[in-house]
Design a binder for these strands. Structure first.
Lengths: 395, 395
DNA sequence: CCAGTTGATTAAAGACTTTGCGTTATTGTC
DNA sequence: GACAATAACGCAAAGTCTTTAATCAACTGG
C-alpha cells in the first residue's frame, strides 16, 4: 500500500464486491454502501464497465420524480470458475459464474474405485468437458478451479499429498494434466474442508464464522472453519480423525453409511427406510451407529466450540430417522461434561453436494480478488477498437 | 479505505511497525523495508516524532564517507501495556513497553484458592500497583491490558464466562473494578490460549503460525493457534478438553503435576527429582502419567496438524525426565495411525510464565494498531506549547 | 584544502478523492 | 401542453498524498 493507485484499486474492489453480491444498484446506493463520493463511484463504475466486469442497465420503469439514476450490475458471466468433487468412486464437476450460480454440471462414476491415476484423469477430463459444454462456457473463460479430494493435500494446496484412496494421484499435477481444457490456476483441497465452506456459503452454517462439518458417509472426516477461515494444518492434514482408535466405543473412522451396511446387510438408504418403518434390526443398528458418531461430534464440539456442527455426506438426506438418535447420542456424550453453550447440530441440506459447492466457493474466493488484474483496463486507442467490439466472447 | 489520508495512515503504520520491531533504522533502511520513497519516509518519521512515538538519534559514530543519515528509533516507553496471569492460586502482573520488554513485574499467592471474588480483586489491584511502581510507569500511560484466566471467556473477550475455578468472577467487570489504577481497555482470555501466543512470540513456537499448547500443570487445557490467529470458539470455549472422559485410558483433565502428586504422595518437583535418581515408584508414575498425556497430545496433533506441540505450565521445567517418556508415549499413540509429518513436540522454555507473556503480547496486539489514534498529531498552535513541553510524563 | 560520496531537502508533476454548484431528465399538476 | 418540483448527474476547484528529479549539505580521506 504505497501509491495512490492502490487507493483506487481498493475502492474499485469495494464497489465490485457490492455488485457481485447481486442485484441492481444505482449510484446513490453504492455511495451509501461503500462510503465513497458520487464522482468516485461513477468513475469506478466507468472503469469496471471498460473492463467488461459491469454493465449499465436502463433505469427501472416505475420510478418516482427526479432524474433517473444510473443503474449498474455485475456481469456475472464475465468469468467463470470450476469446482470439482473428485471422490473415490464418483466425479462431480460444476461450472459457475461470478455470482456463484451453477450454470453447468456433470458427473461420472468409476466402475472400479481403485482405478489407476491416468484413467481417473481421463474421466475427470471428460466430465469437465461435458460440464463446460452444458454451461456453454469456453475453457478460456474459466479463471479458477478447485478440486476436492478425500485425502490430505500439500501445504501449498496444489496437489494431493497422501493418495491412499486415489492411487497414484499424488504424482499428478492437475494443472498440466488437464491442459488445455483447463488453463486456470488449480487449488486442491480436502473434501471435508471444502464441504464446510459449502455449508457456510449455502448450507446449514450460512453466515456462521465458526463451523465444523463431519463428513459421515463412507469415512468420517472433519472440515474445520474458524473465524471464517479454513483450518488446513501445517501439512494439510487438519480434520483428519486418525485418533479415533483412542476413543472408547469408536475405534475407527468408518462412516455411517458403511457401518449401516455392515450391520444390516443392505444399502444405507434401505436401512434408513427400514428404520422408518420401525424395523427393529435397523433401528438398533442406527442407535449403535449414532452412539459412535455422537461421540465424535461431542469431541469436535468440546475442543473447537463452533457455532454449528453439520453432518454432511449422502447420509444427510436421511432426515429425522438419523438425526434424532444422533442428536440424542451427541447430547448424551456431552452431558457428562456440559458445555456452556452446546453447538447446534444440523444435517446438511447440501448433503453430498457440499464438497462440490465448497469447491466453487473456494475457486471464487481465489478469483474475485484477481479480477482487477485479470481484465486490464484498456488504455488509449481503445476507442478505435470499439467498432469491432463484437469480437468479445458472446455468452 | 476511502480518502487519501488513509493512505498516509497506512504508510505511517508500516514505518512504525518496522521501528517497533526494534533497533536503529536510517532513512535508506526504511525505504528498503517499506518500499516508500525518501521524502515519504522522512515525512512520516517527522509525523511520528511529533506524535512522540519516535525519536531521532545522533548518527552512529564510526561512519563511512558521505553525509550521515538521519537515524530513527521507536520510543518504546511512549506507552505501556499490562499483562496479567490470574491463576486460581497465584497472580502475576507484568508491565511492558511498546517493544514488549517487561519493565516491571510483581506476583502474589492466594492463601486460599477459593477466595471470594472481591478479595481476589483487591489482591490483583495491589499486585498491579506493585508492578507499576516497580516499572516506574504511571497508570495513565498504560493503554492496553490483557488478563489470562483458567476459564472460558465471553465471546467478546471482555469477561469471564464460567467461574468454576474463580468463584464470582463472572460477575466482575475488570475494567471498572480496577479503575482508576487501570484506565486502559481490558481483554480477558483463556490462560492456555494466551500461553500458546506466548510460545509463538518468545517460546518454543517462535515464528510458527500453527501451534498448539497443552497447559499440563494442574489441569489439562489446550491453546490453539491457527494461521497466526487464536482459536477462541464461538463462546470462548475452544481448547477445552472436556471430552477426555471419552478417551480410553485418560478419563479426566487432571494435569501432570496433580497426577504425579496423587501417585507418589510428594510434590511434583520432588517426584521429578526422584525419577531422575532412578526411584522406581517415581519412574513408574511418570510412565503412567505420560501415557495419559501422550494420548491427548496425539489427538491434538492428528485433528489440528500443527507445526509444533508445546507442553506448558510449571511442569515444563522438569526437562528430559518428563519429556522423554512423554515423547515415547506420544509417538506410540500416533503409531497406530501414522501422520505424514509428525508435529514437533517441545517443552515450553517459558514454563509457567507463558500465559503472562502471552497476555503482554495480546495487549500489544490490541494497542499497536491504535497508537496512531492514541497520540493525535498536534495541530497548529502547537509551537506555542512547546515551551511547556516538559509537562509530558517523564520515564 | 579539495575531491568524492552519501544522503537530506526542495520543487514539480501526477493521481486520487472530496466538496460545491450548476445542469439535466423525469414526474405530477394546473 | 406548459411549468414547478425533485432527484441525481456532471463538472470544476481544492486539497492530500506520493513519486521523480535535481539541488544542496555533510562528512571522509588524501
Amino acid at each position: 500500500m504505497t501509491t495512490t493507485t492502490a487507493l483506487r484499486r481498493s475502492n474499485t474492489q469495494a464497489v465490485l464486491d457490492v455488485l457481485l453480491a447481486g442485484g441492481r444498484h444505482d449510484g446513490v446506493a453504492l455511495m451509501a454502501t461503500t462510503g465513497l463520493s458520487r464522482p468516485t463511484v461513477h468513475g469506478v463504475c466507468d472503469d469496471l464497465i471498460a473492463r467488461r466486469l459491469v454493465v449499465e442497465l436502463s433505469p427501472a420503469g416505475g420510478a418516482g420524480p427526479g432524474r433517473p439514476p444510473r443503474v449498474y450490475a455485475a456481469r456475472a458471466d464475465a468469468a467463470h470458475v470450476v469446482g470439482v468433487d473428485m471422490g473415490e468412486a464418483t466425479v462431480r464437476v460444476a461450472v459457475a459464474d461470478l455470482r456463484g450460480e451453477v450454470v453447468g454440471e456433470a458427473s461420472a462414476v468409476f466402475p472400479d474405485p481403485r482405478v489407476a491415476a491416468h484413467r481417473r484423469i481421463v474421466l475427470v477430463r471428460d466430465t469437465l468437458a461435458r460440464a463446460l459444454a452444458a454451461a456453454g462456457v469456453a475453457a478460456s473463460n474459466v479463471h479458477a478451479a478447485a478440486f476436492g479430494v478425500p485425502a490430505p493435500v500439500t501445504a501449498d494446496g496444489h496437489a494431493v499429498a497422501v493418495d491412499a484412496y486415489l492411487p497414484g494421484l499424488a504424482a499428478v499435477d492437475l494443472h498440466t494434466a488437464l491442459h488445455p481444457l483447463l488453463v486456470a490456476p488449480v487449488i486442491v483441497e480436502n473434501d471435508a474442508a471444502l464441504a464446510v465452506l459449502g455449508e457456510r456459503w449455502r448450507g446449514a452454517a450460512t453466515g456462521r464464522d465458526d463451523a465444523v462439518l463431519l463428513l459421515a458417509g463412507e469415512r468420517l472426516g472433519a472440515g474445520i472453519c474458524v473465524g471464517g477461515r479454513l483450518v488446513r494444518g501445517s501439512s494439510g492434514g487438519a480434520g483428519e480423525l486418525g485418533f479415533l482408535h483412542l476413543v472408547s466405543g469408536v475405534g475407527d473412522p468408518d462412516g455411517i453409511g458403511r457401518l449401516l451396511r455392515r450391520a444390516t446387510g443392505v444399502a444405507a438408504t434401505e436401512a434408513f427406510a427400514a428404520a422408518r418403518r420401525g424395523d427393529p434390526t435397523a433401528v438398533a443398528a442406527l442407535e449403535a451407529v449414532s452412539r459412535r458418531v455422537g461421540r465424535v461430534l461431542a469431541i469436535l464440539a468440546t475442543l473447537l466450540d463452533p457455532q454449528v456442527l453439520v453432518v454432511g455426506g449422502a447420509v444427510a438426506e436421511a432426515g429425522p430417522v438419523l438425526m434424532q438418535p444422533l442428536r440424542r447420542a451427541y447430547t448424551a456424550a456431552l452431558q457428562e461434561r456440559p458445555l456452556r453453550a452446546t453447538p447446534l447440530l444440523a444435517a446438511s441440506p447440501l448433503a453430498e453436494r457440499g464438497t462440490l459447492l465448497g469447491a466453487v466457493r473456494v475457486a471464487l474466493d481465489d478469483l474475485v480478488p484477481r479480477l482487477l488484474d485479470l481484465h486490464r483496463l484498456p488504455h488509449a486507442g481503445d476507442a478505435t477498437i470499439s467498432l469491432s467490439g463484437r469480437a468479445e466472447v458472446g455468452t
